[in-house]
Lab assay of single mutants.
Amino acid sequence: KVLVLALYDYQEKSPREVTMKKGDILTLLNSTNKDWWKVEVNGRQGFVPAAYVKVL
């Protein structure tokens, strides 16, 4: 399983997205889209901007 680090806070803007806080460790589920990556955080799955996270 691939983990990513949240570099910035992100507030979800649609039901398909998830909120994350800077420093959160998320599970990367899909990174085929260069702009939006699907992650799991706190038991929820959704998209975050790829530029806001870094693969650990």
Rank of each mutant, 00 (worst) to 15 (best):
D9S: 08
R16D: 15
P15N: 11
A50W: 02
A6F: 01
V4K: 01
E17P: 05
V4W: 05
D24P: 00
M20E: 00
N33L: 09
T19L: 03
K13I: 11
L5T: 13
T27W: 13
R16Y: 14
E12S: 13
L7D: 02
Y52E: 02
G46W: 02
N30A: 11
E17K: 05
V18C: 05
W37C: 03
L5W: 10
W36L: 04
F47M: 12
Y8G: 09
I25R: 07
Y10C: 01
V55M: 13
P15M: 11
N42I: 07
W37N: 01
Y52G: 07
V39F: 01
S14P: 05
V4Q: 01
K38M: 12
R44H: 14
D24N: 12
T32N: 12
K54R: 11
V55L: 12
Y8M: 15
Q45D: 07
G46C: 02
E12V: 07
V18P: 01
I25K: 08
W37I: 06
D35C: 05
M20N: 00
Y8N: 09
V4C: 06
V53A: 03
P49V: 02
L29P: 00
V39H: 00
A51Q: 13
K13E: 14
E17F: 08
A51M: 13
D35A: 12
D9M: 03
E12T: 10
D24A: 09
Q11D: 12
L7E: 04
K54P: 01
F47A: 03
K38Y: 15
S14M: 07
L26F: 09
L28P: 01
M20H: 01
F47S: 03
W36I: 03
K13D: 08
I25F: 12
T27H: 09
F47I: 09
K13Q: 15
L3A: 10
G46D: 01
V4E: 00
T19I: 03
W37M: 05
L29S: 03
E17C: 04
A6Y: 01
S31Y: 08
M20G: 00
V53Q: 00
W37D: 01
A50N: 03
Y8E: 13
V18Y: 06
V41A: 10
D35T: 10
K34E: 10
E12G: 15
R16A: 12
G23Y: 07
D35G: 11
V53R: 00
S14I: 05
P49R: 04
E12D: 06
R44C: 04
K54E: 08
D9Y: 05
R44E: 06
L29R: 04
A51I: 14
E12I: 07
P49M: 03
K54M: 14
Y10Q: 01
V39W: 00
A51T: 12
K21T: 09
I25N: 03
Q11W: 15
K34R: 07
V41I: 15
A51W: 09
F47T: 04
V48E: 00
V4I: 07
K1Y: 15
S31L: 07
L5S: 13
Y10T: 01
Y8K: 12
T32Q: 14
R44L: 09
K1P: 13
S31G: 10
P49H: 02
R44Q: 13
T27Y: 14
K21F: 12
Y10I: 01
E40L: 09
L3M: 09
K54Q: 15
K22V: 10
K38W: 13
W36G: 01
G46T: 02
E40T: 07
G43E: 07
R44P: 01
W37V: 14
V48Q: 00
K22A: 11
Y10G: 00
E17H: 08
W36N: 03
T32C: 06
V18T: 07
V18R: 02
Q11H: 10
G46S: 02
L29W: 06
Q45Y: 10
G46I: 03
G46V: 03
A50H: 04
V39E: 00
A6M: 02
K34H: 12
P49G: 01
R44N: 09
V18D: 00
L56K: 04
K34A: 15
V41M: 10
Q45L: 11
A51D: 10
Y8Q: 13
V48C: 03
K21P: 01
N30G: 07
G43M: 10
R44G: 05
V2T: 12
M20C: 06
E40C: 05
K21N: 10
V2Q: 15
K38D: 04
E12A: 09
Y52T: 09
Y10K: 01
V2R: 13
P49T: 01
E17A: 06
L3C: 05
N30W: 07
K1D: 10
L7Q: 06
E12R: 10
K22L: 06
G23E: 03
L56T: 10
N42G: 08
T19E: 05
D9L: 02
A51L: 11
V39R: 00
K38F: 10
V53C: 05
L7R: 04
K54H: 15
M20L: 14
T27S: 12
K38T: 09
G43D: 08
A50G: 05
N42C: 05
T27N: 14
V39D: 00
K13A: 14
G43L: 09
L28I: 04
L26V: 08
K21R: 10
A6C: 06
G23W: 08
P49K: 04
F47W: 14
T32A: 15
M20S: 01
V41L: 10
L3T: 14
E40G: 07
Q45W: 08
V53E: 00
A6E: 00
L56R: 03
G23H: 07
T32K: 09
L29V: 09
V4M: 09
L3F: 14
L26E: 00
D35H: 12
Y52F: 13
K1L: 14
T32D: 15
K38G: 07
I25S: 04
G23K: 02
D35K: 14
S31A: 12
S31P: 07
L26C: 07
D35V: 12
V53D: 00
F47L: 11
V48F: 00
L3D: 06
V55A: 12
